[in-house]
Simulated scan of single mutants.
Amino acid sequence: MEISFKGKRVLVTGAGQGIGRAIAIDLWRAGAKVVALSRTRSHLESLKNEYPAIDIVDVDVADWDKTRELVDSLGHFDALVNNAAVAICEPFLECTTKAFDLMANVNVKSIINISQVIAKKMIDNKTKGTIVNISSQASKAALKDHTIYSASKAGLDSITRSMALELGPYGIRTNAVNPTVTMTAMAQVGWSDPEKAEGMLSKIPLGRFAEVSEVSDAVLYLLSDKASMINGVELPIDGGFLAT
C-alpha cells in the first residue's frame, strides 16, 4: 500500500531524535514538506545535516506563550504529529510537584496549545487535516514508577477523543497511537538489562519490544487518506500487551 504526502505540509514536534525524528524522515520520504520542532537545537541541526529539505525550529513546548507565537508564525499545515513528551519515573510515594508540572506542561498542555493553533488555520483554510498524538501503553495500564507519566498520557487520550469530536465536523481527524517500549537509541540503553527487560517482555505476547519503524508506519497510515474514516481511536502498538 503506497502512501504519499506529496504537496502536504506537516509539523512534527519532538522531532530531534527517537520516534519523532523517524516520523519526520518517513514523512519527507513520502513527499511531505516537513517542519521538525524540538527543544534541542543540536538534535535538529543533526537532522538538517542529513535531510536538508526538512525545515527545523526550536522551542521549549513547556512555554505556552513562546510556543504559541512560534507555531502561529509557521503558517498553515495539512497535518500535525504531537510527539514531544517528557518522562520522569518516580515511585508513587515520592512523586514531586516539579515532575508533575513539567509533564503536565509538556505532555498535556502543549498538545492543546499547538493543536489549537494548527486546527484553527486548518479550519480557516477549509483543510481536511489530520492530527496524530503520540500516547503510550502507560495510559491504559499501571506501570511501576509511572504514576504522573501515566496520568499525563491518559489525559492525552482524553484530549484526543475530545479533539476528534469537536474537530470532526470540520473534516479534521484526530487519533492517537499507544506504543509499548520502542527501541530508540535511548530505550536500547535503558532496557539493555535482561532482568529489567524480561519483566516487560513477559507481558507482551509477541515477546519483543516495538521497533521505531513500526510506530512510524502506523502514524503515517493514520495521517493518510487511507485512514479517512478513522477518527478518535487510541491504537496500541504493543504486541498484545494490553490484550492480556
Rank of each mutant, 00 (worst) to 15 (best):
M1S: 14
M1P: 04
I3C: 08
R9N: 08
L11Q: 01
T13E: 13
G14W: 05
G16Q: 05
Q17T: 14
G18V: 07
R29M: 11
R29E: 15
G31K: 02
S38G: 13
S38W: 10
R39H: 10
E50T: 05
P52V: 11
A53K: 12
I56H: 11
V57K: 15
K66P: 00
H76R: 12
F77I: 00
V86R: 07
V86Q: 03
A87N: 14
T97F: 13
V108W: 12
A119H: 01
K121N: 07
I123E: 05
I131C: 01
I134M: 13
S139W: 11
K140E: 12
T147V: 13
A151P: 02
A154I: 11
G171R: 01
I172P: 04
M183N: 06
M186I: 06
A187H: 12
W191N: 00
S192C: 12
D193W: 02
P194I: 09
M200R: 09
S202V: 02
P205F: 04
L206F: 15
G207F: 13
E211F: 11
S216Y: 09
L222R: 00
S224H: 07
S224K: 03
V233I: 15
P236T: 04
P236N: 12
P236C: 06
P236M: 00
G239N: 06
G240W: 09
A243I: 09
T244F: 05
